[in-house]
Amino acid sequence: MIPDDPITCIPDEFPPERRDAELWIEDGTLVLAVEDTAFRVYKGLLKIHSPVFKDMLALPTSLLPAGVTVGTTVVDGEKCTVVRLPDSAREWRYVLRVLVVGDGRTLKCVLNLSRSGSDLFLMVLLAYIRLGHKYKIEDVYRRSLKALKGVLKPRWSFSARPRLLPSYALCVVNIARLTGEPSLLPYAMLLCSRGVSPAFTGYIVHSDGKKEDLNEEDDTRCIQATRKLVLLTLSAITEVVLPPMTCKEGRKCQKMMDTLARTLLPTVMNPMSPGPMDPMLWSVVRSEEFRLAQKMLCASCWDQLSFFRVRKQREEVWNMLPSLFDISSDEEYKANH
């Protein structure tokens, strides 16, 4: 039903250069005008997937959400409903690909590729979550959020490393605040900390040229956590390299551990030449010193170092992240991870 007080649009409002090349269906009954792009789709399709859209198409103009207008226009000689949205055309393109295909193949493909750590598909995943949450496109939102939690799930293996670039991590932080999902925050905020990621700029420029900043409150939290990250890194390395080794090889393995301690600890303790903080030991275990230790230690000592000690420290640091960044809902965080 078209509202009682529609906005009448001029017939040539959507010339070919504004029409999306992929998502302009010639017999579509609704035009979504987002930024400078127009998508023509089926009205009934959006109403089925989104109760928010169903309501918006029935509401008078005075009750529409901020930034949204609904009216009518003439497209290629046919009367058509037009909805203007204050969102990103790039993100709507991602979502409409799923809704128009309709069989879930596009969504399934993105979910699988995002789990592999692909940055491009992670951004598509975040678009699904943002618009799925805003417009209550429940299936897209629910499955995408589950996939994102899978990307952020801790991995304790010796070779584990970050699965997000810091610039993408800030998008995760913003999404977590938008959706009220605190379990997404600690890992992403760790990567947004300049002590851990010195090259982090606090913003990202998306493929459409739009700039997204880390919200000010969480940026402050990340900065304030710097001193604690130094102490956590020092504690983690100390607990890994200082306890004595006892094995059949005796002094040989202990000598190697002493070398590790003499090499690694000064880099953290020296305030004049600080490197990136590494409380999760991502970089430490890939260092030349650890590669040498793998060659020099006996099998038993190497297992103790690489599996038991490193894993234990990663688990302890992981469980400290909520308090480190002053994040509430600590119990929910642990339950989700």
Rank of each mutant, 00 (worst) to 15 (best):
D4V: 09
D4N: 13
P6Y: 02
T8W: 04
C9I: 12
I10P: 09
P11D: 13
D12E: 15
E13G: 11
F14W: 15
P15D: 15
P16R: 03
L23R: 11
L23T: 04
L23A: 09
W24K: 08
I25W: 02
I25K: 09
D27V: 05
T29D: 09
E35V: 02
E35D: 09
R40L: 07
R40V: 08
G44Y: 12
G44R: 11
L46M: 04
K47I: 07
A58W: 03
L63D: 14
P65K: 06
P65I: 01
G67M: 04
V70T: 04
C80H: 13
C80S: 11
V82S: 10
L85N: 10
P86R: 00
S88Q: 14
S88C: 14
R90K: 04
Y94G: 00
L99S: 07
V100W: 10
G102H: 09
G104H: 04
T106A: 13
T106R: 14
L107Q: 04
V110G: 01
V110S: 00
R115E: 04
S116D: 11
G117I: 03
L120T: 15
F121C: 10
L122H: 01
M123R: 14
L125K: 01
A127Q: 02
I129W: 06
L131D: 02
L131N: 02
D139S: 03
Y141L: 01
R143L: 12
A147F: 06
L152A: 05
K153Y: 10
A160L: 05
R161H: 10
L170S: 11
V172Y: 06
V172L: 13
V173A: 01
V173C: 07
A176C: 12
L178C: 01
T179S: 07
L184S: 01
A188C: 07
L191M: 02
C192R: 02
S193M: 03
V196Y: 11
S197E: 01
P198V: 01
P198Y: 07
A199Y: 09
T201G: 07
I204Q: 05
V205W: 01
V205C: 03
K211W: 00
E212K: 13
E212D: 09
N215A: 14
E217Q: 11
D218Q: 13
D218W: 15
D219P: 09
T220A: 13
R221T: 05
I223E: 11
A225W: 05
I237G: 09
E239W: 05
T259F: 05
A261N: 06
A261D: 07
T263A: 12
P266S: 08
T267K: 14
M269H: 06
N270P: 03
S273N: 06
P274L: 04
G275E: 15
P276N: 12
D278Y: 09
P279D: 08
L281W: 08
W282G: 03
W282H: 14
W282P: 11
V285N: 00
V285W: 02
S287I: 12
E289S: 11
E289F: 07
R291S: 08
A299R: 12
S300C: 05
F308W: 11
R311W: 03
E315A: 10
E316K: 14
N319A: 15
M320I: 11
L324E: 04
I327L: 15
S328H: 13
D330Q: 12
Y333T: 10
A335T: 08
N336K: 15
H337G: 13
H337D: 08
